[in-house]
Computed example of a mutant assay.
Amino acid sequence: MTGDVAVLGAGMHPWGKWGRSFVEYGTAAARAALTDAGIDWRDVGSVVGADTVRGGYPGYVAGATFAKALGWQGARMASVYAACASGAQAVNTARAQILAGLADVVLVVGADAAPKGFFRPAGGERADDPDWLRFRLLGATNPTYFGLYARRRMALYGDTLEDFAQVKVKNAACGALNPLARYRKRVTAEEVAGSAVVADPLRLLDICATSDGGAALVLSSMEFARRHGAADPVRVRAVSTVTPTYPNTVLDLPDIATDSAAGVEPEGPGFRASITRAAYEEAGIGPDELSLAEVYDLSTALELQWYEDLGLCGAGEGAKLLREGATAPGGRIPVNASGGLASFGEAVPAQAIAQVCELTWQLRGTAGARQVAGARVGITANQGLFGHGSAVVAVR
């Protein structure tokens, strides 16, 4: 049995700060994807919603929420949550249902109405959650983490503030060509350097915003796609949702501060590299076969790290790859041709789905002014809190 499933439709609600319910964004994206697929809502056999825990109870049961909003018609329903990897987990759930023969057509939907300011853990106190502890006890919000990561790259590899700024310049130029992006204005390196310091060394324009938005996909079996007249659709070939590998999987929090034996080196590749490696292995490809990549650029420095974790270059060579223009439009391996989170901002449960939407349009050759010439194979990658991460490989 082939592991491929067809991407019949892709749709998005534009990103921004619209001040409306996530349900509105998700249903708009869903209808756009159904129209793109040429599928009637009543032909959908299953709905998988990527949860948004900031959306109240409807956000925790997003699959049922979107199914209700579109009009109950008897479809299966599932809801998944995996922080920033929620959308890819939803794609994975849909693919599993299709390959298991439980549904021929599955609608995947994610949407968010993000609050202003830094994200903070939802749902009250969680003393057993290391990320909650980081926020509450250390005051280490996500931009603080991004800043520490940038400092590490500067110390280990000699990355510079100018390198980080050039990531933003590249992604903003791509976002200026994307009608769905929130920020559609080119920026200069001088503008990045002149923006306010948020978490030294990162400036305001080095860090992505929080946004409202929605994204949806219509996935189907290859047999249904052929019956539907899609002889050569974009196909999802692999979805990786692996966890990190550590010698001890249960952390005894009270002992970490006093027992040096707890500080054991991880086995194998780092977390992000293990995510992408699993995707490559499942898809039967290597990084040299990629046409483009959509990665999770929460900060400019983190995009450089993804170059290395994707195997596009060696450790410490991310900035060199950027300087050579390899990851820019027209380069050897364009990264974030959509404009990335630099141009969209975070709409957490939607963004991994939006990445697959971009791959779909690029592999179809319908991405307009931002089209990557001859695109045939693409990969997405993102990392969520508490060991959640994902990568999706799409081919044509």
Rank of each mutant, 00 (worst) to 15 (best):
E265F: 14
A315M: 15
L298Y: 04
G311E: 09
A261H: 05
E303Q: 11
A273Y: 09
I256Y: 09
G286V: 08
E282Y: 02
R272N: 12
A273H: 07
G286I: 05
A293F: 00
A262W: 05
L292Y: 13
G284S: 07
L322D: 13
P266D: 06
G263R: 13
I275R: 02
G286T: 01
A283I: 00
G316A: 04
A278E: 09
S299M: 02
D297H: 03
L312W: 01
A279E: 13
S274G: 15
G325M: 12
T300G: 07
L298H: 00
T276C: 11
L292G: 04
A262Y: 08
G314V: 07
T276E: 13
S291C: 08
W306I: 08
S274R: 13
F271S: 06
E294S: 12
P287F: 11
W306T: 04
P266A: 11
E267G: 09
P266F: 00
L292W: 09
G270D: 03
R323T: 03
Y296R: 06
Y307P: 10
L292F: 08
Y307D: 02
G325Q: 03
D288C: 07
A257Q: 09
L304Y: 08
Y307F: 03
P287V: 06
R323Q: 09
E289N: 05
Y296P: 00
E289D: 10
Q305W: 03
R277W: 04
E289I: 04
E324R: 12
G316R: 11
A279T: 01
A326G: 09
S299R: 14
L290S: 09
L310S: 10
E308L: 01
C313V: 12
W306E: 01
C313A: 05
I256S: 06
T276H: 02
V264L: 12
E289R: 15
I256V: 13
S260F: 00
A326I: 04
G318V: 14
L312Q: 05
E317L: 04
A301C: 11
D255P: 01
P269I: 03
A315V: 13
E282S: 10
E308A: 06
Y296G: 01
V264Y: 07
R323K: 14
D259E: 05
L312F: 05
D259V: 05
V264E: 12
L310E: 07
G286W: 13
W306K: 07
E281G: 12
A319V: 10
T258N: 04
A278L: 06
E281L: 14
L321K: 11
